[in-house]
Design a protein around this nucleic acid. Structure first.
Lengths: 187, 187
DNA sequence: TTCATTTTTTAACATTTGTAAAATGTTGCG
DNA sequence: CGCAACATTTTACAAATGTTAAAAAATGAA
């Protein structure tokens, strides 16, 4: 079982001992397509790793719903504001396919952070990787047009293009669905 | 001297011992207005805390320069990609006023992360706070128009409005300077 | 398959924002 | 002061994107 965990990239840096400590706090869960596992108005008590499936994070606006993240196998999945500030987050997270996840209760994880130096640094690196990815998207928004962002997205996430509704991809790219259609039409 | 550090919010959570360990790696530096302390094409070996002054982070595009962060007293200041991946970053950081900074060499800091549980968790929280702030900006970009972002900016950073050139604020808000002028004209 | 539902595309038009250039305002230095 | 350099606003026009509505295509359930 520890061996199974090790093949998941996010756990690969941990020693046998730390991985064992962490695995004591893990549960394996499965949910069907369409399940909303994290809700924006609640404090989410778990941290998830997606073993298989697809997820999207979105926020509800007045008359639109904006997707700002997609997750695939191996991605970590958590409500930033629950995890960091113990407050309701900004995001809903919905599964776009039947999915298998590992979950860790935040209260357990936070205890480990105070006890285990390796796990504390593991948690630091997770936040750092999310930070780099989020900064990257902010910069891309500033420097690239919607058409280029669409090309990048198709190149980097070819599976998502096949499986995710274009309306979600449009809002992820920061344009309306009509504009995305026009971009696609201009092949 | 340790007491002086404690009044800086980012250090306030550390114990006497950890703060002492950290302070052994600190240097105090001062630079005049206009100094570029971090360059996008270099690996930046220091982590900074701004004691006084103003800073902005920007990236160079083909024909424009886009500001995506402003720093004030108490803010931490580092090249995300140098700090996280030991690679040249995306950002230049320039001082917009004469500034006093504390700097910590990354190699020293990383050693502390591997030795001191409290400092490792301190580093985790820094990354988490930057992450929350960056996510907040990405979501704001999606849900708020430029006029509302400008109002928010003036409300939250009244000192910056006074001291920073509007062209920098325009690119920070994600619009051209002409559009920002139009927003301002519509009082 | 067929029908109903949902998604995607297309079209016409409105609005916003961008671009370029000129006009005006501001700052600091000799 | 008076000039030079730079910042900001304004104008006119162009380009991109949004809005609304309808048509076409795809999907899923009976």
């Amino acid at each position: 079982m520890i061996e199974q965990l090790r093949i998941i990239a996010v756990f690969s840096s941990l020693s046998e001992e730390s991985l064992h400590e962490l695995s004591n706090c893990m549960e394996y869960v499965q949910y069907p397509k369409g399940t909303t596992i994290i809700r924006a108005d609640k404090v989410e008590p778990y941290f998830y790793v997606l073993q298989s499936g697809i997820a999207r994070a979105y926020s509800d606006g007045e008359n639109q719903q904006i997707t700002f993240w997609f997750g695939q196998s191996g991605d970590v999945l958590f409500s930033f504001n629950s995890y960091i500030n113990n407050r309701p987050g900004y995001e809903n997270i919905e599964l776009l396919a039947n999915s298998a996840l590992i979950r860790i209760k935040l209260t357990d994880l936070f205890l480990l952070y105070q006890q285990n130096l390796e796990i504390a640094n593991w948690g630091r690196k997770i936040a750092e990787q999310e930070l780099i990815a989020t900064e990257r998207r902010l910069i891309d928004r500033a420097f690239k047009g919607a058409a280029e962002r669409y090309r990048d997205f198709t190149a980097q996430s070819p599976e998502l293009i096949k499986k995710v509704a274009l309306k979600h991809i449009a809002s992820y790219l920061g344009v309306t669905q009509v504009t995305l259609s026009r971009i696609r039409a201009a092949h």
